[in-house]
Write a protein that binds this DNA or RNA. Structure first.
Lengths: 211, 211
DNA sequence: AAACTCGTTGACTGACCAGTCAATCTGGCG
DNA sequence: CGCCAGATTGACTGGTCAGTCAACGAGTTT
């Protein structure tokens, strides 16, 4: 797996970045390896010098980014001084910022990997499960601390939380929701509020029936 | 678009059902049209007698099922006597039962269509948007009736709700959660509780600090 | 029974494309 | 310089597969 750049340019990185663009634009299955090579401004064969197959490129993109997220989740959970709600806010914030900074990459990961895990190896399923697990850890901490209720299992709660975030990203990816800086920031708080406090108005606050 | 069966058997239906099985097992992109034909016990060419392309089969499967769901959501929303919470329970129940009764079909729809809407025409995006819209209508009704809070928009709330459910199905599809009758039933209530009441323990109920 | 309709068959083709490979280039080193 | 290692090139191949099509067959009509 050679990595040393001939001149100042890391061609391997160039190919990975080109793949992000191309996979995001045309979809993994609808693009050719030559599209990636062209986008990278590199000869067709060079792609196979650095990667053993088209799928390995996708693999690499996924694993690289996913690991960063797993580490971030673990780091957030380790900050014992934070209340759960803020930990969850940090997690939502991290994922949303990931999309803000690298929308194409996140699009590829969500559209081509996260929901297509059957086409790929069990490797990815394991990694995805780890993310659930990390969030579940945070929830578990909140339950132990008496901040979260016990009626909903940590795993189930983590799933709802992650599901809401992924749906949010999907909505952005498919242009069903506006993508402005303000919206990104607002969404962080909203998703935490929705999941932590729920949608229901507390009975005490409800208007009288004759209202 | 011919439909009349030669003998008692509707070959078109046979092909559609075979496609569900094959798409679910190998994935849309990783199976051949001949796999579908074989599974249906039908000649290769007959597939093209009833459908103009491989994609049209997937189209048909998606639209057929999705429309049923859209109608169900609208029907649930129309039952004015129900409180929002029960409407949402009905929606969650409908989708979960859809998976219980036709796991392969739901797997295909979620894995190949719902999250891959970029590969397909805007037709599907519109339909998916309609589902969000239908749920948002229900939420909107709940807000008008003073049952749900106003701080979270109906669209955003609908997205969280649908996202949680889809993540739940995904977890079943990829075998990350047990799939028993009891689990299916329990999940219906849990997802509504999580989304309506949230995960947080009301402050009043929290144990004392010196607990 | 001849003619017609249309469901049904499966071999075939034409295009596409992932992956290979032999040749070429470039820079470093003795 | 002469040689080597590794980066880079792009034409080529081998296999795959979606979609076509000419022929066949089983009812139906006249």
């Amino acid at each position: 797996m050679p990595t040393s750049p001939r001149n100042g340019v890391d061609k391997r990185r160039l190919i990975l970045d080109a793949a992000i663009t191309v996979f995001a634009r045309k979809g993994f299955h609808h693009c050719r390896v030559s599209d990636v090579a062209d986008e990278a401004g590199v000869a067709y064969g060079l792609v196979y010098h650095y990667f053993s197959s088209k799928e390995e490129i996708l693999n690499e993109l996924f694993l690289e980014r996913w690991q960063i997220m797993l580490d971030a989740i673990a780091a957030i959970d380790a900050r014992d001084e934070l209340p759960v709600r803020e930990k969850l806010y940090e997690v939502a914030g991290f994922i949303i910022d990931s999309y803000r900074n690298q929308p194409d990459l996140m699009k590829v990961i969500i559209v081509e990997v996260t929901r297509a895990a059957n086409s790929f190896g069990a490797l990815h399923l394991g990694k995805i499960r780890e993310a659930y697990g990390g969030i579940a850890e945070i929830v578990e901490g909140g339950r132990r601390g008496g901040e979260l209720k016990e009626t909903i299992s940590a795993d189930f709660a983590a799933m709802c939380f992650y599901g809401a975030i992924e749906q949010l990203l999907s909505a952005w990816i498919f242009d069903l929701l506006p993508q402005t800086e303000a919206e990104f920031e607002r969404a962080k708080g909203l998703v935490v509020e929705a999941i932590c406090d729920g949608l229901a108005l507390p009975v005490a606050d409800r208007p009288g029936v004759s209202g």
